[in-house]
């Protein structure tokens, strides 16, 4: 095969192609996977959908980790949301049986941050612990 009149071995072209593909994929591969957390709102409290016994659970998240939080409102007739005020992130206000997601990058510094339901923060709030 020749490029611009110079003969180039096929093997070199193949190697280049592999490198180019890797270059495109590299950032995605090196990123930590997004942590998925699904919460349910019911009885004026948040619950993990994997643990419907513990109200307003503490959410442990690694520093700098990508997090996607899904809230499903299972309380008929009451509007709920999920917000992390310090990050200015929240899902939409949800009616019964509605869901929404919010994605954010956890703070780089370990510490604790409050999450809450904005209309009901008096009762529906918990802690995000960054470790």
């Amino acid at each position: 095969m020749s490029i611009l009149g110079k003969r180039v071995p096929l093997r070199a072209i193949a190697a280049m192609a592999v490198l180019m593909i890797l270059a495109v994929l590299a950032p995605a591969l090196s990123k930590t996977p997004t942590r998925e957390i699904t919460l349910v709102a019911k009885g004026m409290a948040f619950y993990l959908d994997s643990d419907l016994k513990t109200p307003n659970p503490t959410l442990d998240i690694k520093a700098g980790e990508r997090v996607r939080i899904t809230l499903r409102n299972q309380e008929r007739g009451i509007i709920h949301d999920f917000a992390v005020p310090v990050l200015k992130k929240s899902v939409d206000q949800l009616g019964w049986n509605e869901s929404d997601q919010v994605t954010f990058t956890a703070p780089k510094r370990p510490g604790t941050y409050q999450y809450e339901c904005q209309p009901h923060r008096l009762m529906m709030r918990g802690t995000i612990r960054i470790y």
Partner: peptide
Amino acid sequence: IYAVDRDIEIAPGLF
């Protein structure tokens, strides 16, 4: 006891 706003169904389909 807590106060909370809620849409309640007082007749079929009437909130």
